[in-house]
Amino acid sequence: MAVAKKTQAASPAAARSASADKVKPADFSKEQELQAYRDMLLIRRFEEKAGQMYGMGLIGGFCHLYIGQEAVVTGMQMTLKKGDQVITGYRDHGHMLACGMDAKGVMAELTGRRGGYSKGKGGSMHMFSVEKGFFGGHGIVGAQVSLGTGLAFTNKYRKTDNVCLTYFGDGAANQGQVYESFNMAELWKLPVVYIIENNRYAMGTAVHRSSAQQDFSRRGISFNIPGEQVDGMDVRAVKAAGEKAVQWCRDGNGPYILEMMTYRYRGHSMSDPAKYRTREEVEKIRGEQDPIEQVRQRLLKNKWVSEDELKKIDAKVRDVVNEAAEFATHDPEPDPSELWTDILR
């Protein structure tokens, strides 16, 4: 039997040693705080608008909102450089906006219009922008984990130092192909950061009711993949952990697992009234840990901005979102001829 590089006993204590040492998040500069504030607020307002438009019947089908989880993609995106890839599952609007995709194109895809990123043929769960390094937007829970492993394969094959961020949830973490991919990625030392967004509910089933091992950062231990838990509500913690993980991959050390401790304020999808948890639970986390409010308070406390200046930022973000909603409402429906395009060449 081959001897693993980092030998672990079966005990939790020994297993824990495989987790890398946590990085203490460095304070953000004023510019970084402002950037994080703008980026997170854009996602929040966009998702709120999408929820409204869904309620008005302008968006049909599925619509999984990212509200509450904004710090995860915002912090991770700050660690990337040109040529890096991002791939995720179906709760994907936040990832697209973080990658710099146009809010109009994303919203118009939600309404299924011609100007949507997939001309209305993809919908909420299926959008791509190769130009921005975003490879979807995937509807089958966990499927993107092996696809992201393959994106990282190309980086290794072409000898670039690019990295693929592969996002999935605590629910997807219980799918089988995740572990096939972990094994392959570590075996081949592929530059992929597996980011497990633990929002505490796998659809409507709480983590403790769906997962035998609830510390998802340890899910890579038997493959020798280092992992750590991160405060996914603090964008500074996300960025700090992300930088370390991304550097680990760029240096050719293979994959890395980050478990982002986060929370989704809304239901799993628009049709989920979230009766499996209390209103108090949501209000408590929202009141004490909201990722945007944290940045806002720091900006004010440091006297980096005034309330008035924040209001101006809010107004600008609202303008972008309103413009996107306007476009997505009035853009024409796709031409029926599109039924037959982009299937086979």
């Binding site: 890839q85 791939i87 490879f135 499927a143 984990v145 092996s146 696809l147 992201g148 492993t149 393959g150 994106l151 990282a152 394969f153 190309t154 980086n155 094959y157 693929c164 089988g176 192909q177 096939e180 991919s181 094994n183 392959m184």
Partner: peptide
Amino acid sequence: EQAILGAAMGAAMT
């Protein structure tokens, strides 16, 4: 098999 085909597709996409 899932990792083989998933990795192949990721590689093909890039």
